[in-house]
Design a protein around this nucleic acid. Structure first.
Lengths: 132, 132
DNA sequence: CCTATACCCAATTGAATTAGTAGGGAATTA
DNA sequence: TAATTCCCTACTAATTCAATTGGGTATAGG
């Protein structure tokens, strides 16, 4: 039961960017990648998703880069996980009933759903500003 | 972020066995495997682990099989997950500090640990008898 | 205008883990 | 002694995740 790099790298990148929120300057991919020890091209794709979700904004050319598009107080971990496509469920069939071989009631699912709900709650309650 | 089959199959098997607790009869691997739609040989290995953790007991020969070794009220989901080797953590470095490239304090880890703790809590609070 | 910077994007490969299979062995019952 | 059923290890297949490659486009500054 493990979070993928999408979620891990995604959060780390956002924490990194959140640190520069006040300065309003753009941070280059290269810089984030080096500071956080994340492969450049791989991180790039995550940042692309974060951009599409309007969590970061970008600027090209010299002095360009990425910066957080809202105050860290307004971005929570759930937003980030959702943006990068890190799904919050422990078993497939919680989301997709057709995958379950049980007709009516699945006892196990009660547990997995409850766990997923807890994770989601933590994600939604934790804002970036608490992490910097 | 997904639970592996170890945890999923393991719990399902235990729920199945818990249903027969009163009867005290042994249920064959084949029967569990068929009812739950889990590959026989694969399930066998999980049951072996559950046996080693003293959660189930076995008997060979005709009319042999597996049965739960304690009352369902005394077995929680955590016991099962632990027994089958389903680790409860979302990122490696929560358990193994040496894997983390941060020297002192890792902001992200705060989140992942909190989530893992929540999962553990649910697992420890949920007993088999609630699921049958 | 031209060049360096730095984001943008798709396709492919590589690596690791998980899931499942095969097959021989040993205990128990009838 | 034969049928049943657990016991155990090694191997293979499948899937998913992680990372790489490489070419494209916008912007700033000289």
């Amino acid at each position: 039961m493990k979070m993928t790099t999408k979620g891990r790298y995604g959060l780390r990148a956002m924490v990194e960017l959140a640190r520069y929120y006040e300065k309003e300057e753009f941070i280059s991919l290269k810089s984030i990648s080096q500071k956080q020890g994340i492969p450049e091209n791989y991180l790039e794709r995550l940042l692309a998703k974060l951009r599409k979700a309007s969590l970061v904004e970008t600027h090209r050319g010299t002095q360009g880069g990425y910066r957080i598009s809202r105050s860290p107080e307004e971005i929570n971990v759930y937003d980030i996980l959702f943006a990068v496509g890190e799904a919050i469920y422990l078993v497939e069939c919680t989301n997709n009933k057709s995958l379950c071989h049980m007709q009516d009631y699945c006892p196990s699912n009660v547990v997995w759903s409850k766990m997923a709900q807890q994770i989601e709650d933590v994600a939604k309650k934790t804002y970036l500003d608490e992490l910097i």
